[in-house]
Nucleic acid binder design. Structure first.
Length: 527
RNA sequence: GCCCCUAUCGUCUAGACGGCCUAGGACGCCAGGUUCUCAUCCUGGUAACACCGGUUCGAAUCCGGUUGGGGGUACCA
């Protein structure tokens, strides 16, 4: 088997969201897990909406996520001539025709071939017999067959399908007389010289044909050809449409596996004909389940939700987001979910991707982020925390002291924005959490104990962790309290908060002078 | 309307051959523990096979139907 060549093909029409980047991740993992190549193609043919800023943002996001691509990015807009040339050759080979639909000029349409003998992905299935609505005519021309079924209430329900979907079509009237046999005149219809409008038909019979392909994720898929319509490949204004451009580029880039979102499944039934008409070999297809938002709808650029850049701005670790996203629609098959990138590369396989949509769980992502932060080498953690603190009022103190605080809090940090909560180490005047004050400080006897503690602290020879611990123990023993009962009141007095790092370490780091001042302020709060 | 896909705890998921599933793991939540607290850590608990039929000695697992969800049905990508 040839090496795997995959591509990520976003259109730069806005910020890239979580669904897009997950597609990129799976492509990247598929390639990296088997030594294949991961290419980037920027589908910028929608010139009105494609902006250079969006392209730069795309590069930024990919770099941040560590999604390295091979070779130079391909810009689809630069391939326009190739697309048009392909359309021209399709026209010359009889695989396409020009037709004026509506009031526009002539567009170029791909013709699903009447003769499917050489196409392994089209098979004849059952013979179909349909009751028609007699009031509506059946129209047969080179664009296809249009007819009307009856709804339950007896109203006409218009249908339309490509000519090739109606092999052996026969139309009958109520008396059972054959009104039209398609196969006899298909030649003229195909070249556009003959068209029929048949009135009074109540019954149609034809041989159904199905288009089939095997998806690496979803398995064997099929769709009746009579439910499909001929596909415009070049608009009447002369611009190639997405389907043509996409397939031409994938052929030109020699893509072996097309890995994309579930929303492209239906397109694939049409794309296989394009590959065949262009004389190209079919790639393998893998359609990934959509990632849906809290409302159960797929993320879209229009909703402006869940941009990857937002996660970056909020201080998420790219590796944590990467790891988390990998678990949406895929699982390694064992119980370990926390998998650094090399493990992910080793474990990833397309055949373990599932096919139903997944919803983001931001809490689980946060948990992953906390684990990745805890596992960061300390120097890296401290640098990033320092950078994250730059926007705080208290930023810019001594780096050595900051590092000591960071060391104390690394394992408890879920997100770098949490450093805002480190303020008690860096500011003079505390902001008290009212709830914490009420619960821990404003209780009978607390003020007395804090006074006793202040005295004990003052008498301490060395204001270190061991000394602080024994001083606290001394006070609780004298008050006949349970060990640790005084810790939360002390914490609230020293930090204004009910949560934080170990209290002895916190006190030691704050230093005797500040601790004493805060105890006094705390006593005032305790009233 | 028509076509395609899909359905296990609140969420992400495990569950190749039907019995090892009185359905496992993770997040969340709850409780307890770490002879000092907490957002760390440890232990325990909570909670699911959409519904109805069928096949079978036996079904979350196979088949059919219903319902729900998603996608498509464009001279959008």
């Amino acid at each position: 088997m040839l090496a795997m060549r995959v591509r990520f093909a976003p259109s730069p029409t806005g910020n890239i969201h979580i669904g897009n980047i997950r597609t990129a991740i799976f492509n990247w993992l598929a390639a990296r897990s088997c030594g294949g190549e991961f290419l980037l193609r920027i589908e910028d043919t929608d010139r009105e909406r494609s902006t250079d800023e969006a392209v730069q943002a795309l590069f930024g996001v990919m770099e941040w996520m560590g999604l390295t691509f091979d070779g130079e990015p391909v810009y689809q807009s630069a391939q326009r001539e190739a697309h048009l040339t392909a359309a021209e050759s399709l026209l010359e080979g009889g695989h396409a025709y020009r037709f004026a639909k509506g009031d526009g000029g002539e567009a170029t349409l791909l013709r699903f071939p009447w003769n499917t003998a050489g196409l392994p992905f089209v098979v004849d299935t059952e013979s179909v017999e349909l009751e028609l609505h007699a009031d509506e005519p059946v129209c047969v021309d080179q664009t296809g067959v249009s007819y009307s079924l009856r709804t339950r209430k007896g109203k006409p329900a218009p249908q339309q399908g490509t000519l090739a979907g109606f092999k052996g079509l026969q139309l009958y009237n109520a008396a059972g007389t054959l009104l039209l046999g398609l196969d006899d005149e298909v030649g003229g219809i195909l070249d556009g010289t003959v068209a029929h409008e048949v009135a009074g038909a109540v019954r149609m019979v034809f041989q159904r044909r199905e288009v089939q392909f095997t998806d690496l994720v979803k398995g064997h898929l099929s769709k009746p050809l009579d439910s499909m319509r001929d596909q415009v490949i070049v608009r009447s204004d002369g611009n190639p449409v997405f389907h043509l451009a996409n397939v031409c580029d994938d052929i030109a880039m020699e893509i072996s596996h097309v890995i994309r979102g579930d929303d492209h499944v239906e397109n694939t039934f049409r794309h296989v004909f394009l590959y065949a008409s262009l004389g190209a070999k079919l790639p393998q297809f893998a359609h990934l389940p959509m990632i849906v938002n809290q409302q159960g709808r797929p993320y879209s650029k229009r909703d402006g939700d869940a941009y990857v850049g937002d996660f970056r701005a909020k201080g998420y670790q790219p590796d944590a987001l990467f790891n988390y996203l990998t678990l949406l629609g895929w699982s390694p098959g064992h119980d370990v979910e926390y998998m650094p990138r090399p493990e992910l590369i080793a474990a990833f396989a397309l055949d373990r991707v599932i096919s139903s949509p997944a919803q983001m769980d931001f809490r689980k992502l946060l948990d992953f982020n906390g684990r990745y932060l805890a596992d960061l080498p300390f120097a890296e953690f401290a640098n990033a925390a320092w950078a994250a603190a730059a926007d705080e009022d208290w930023a810019g103190g001594e780096r050595e002291f900051f590092d000591q605080v960071a060391l104390l809090l690394q394992t408890r940090t879920k997100l770098f924005t949490d450093v805002a909560g480190w303020a008690p180490f860096f500011v003079e005047t505390l902001t008290y959490d009212e709830k914490a004050v009420r619960k821990h400080l404003a209780k009978d006897g607390v003020a007395d104990r804090l006074r006793a503690l202040a005295a004990a602290f003052s008498g301490l020879e060395a204001f270190d962790v061991a000394g602080i611990e024994s001083a606290i123990h001394g006070v609780t023993e004298a008050a006949e309290m349970k060990q640790g009962k005084l810790n939360q009141p002390i914490r609230v007095a020293l930090t204004g908060q009910s949560v934080g790092a170990g209290i002895y370490e916190t006190a030691a780091l704050l230093g005797r002078e500040r601790v004493l001042a805060r105890l006094e302020a705390g006593i005032a709060q305790a009233g």
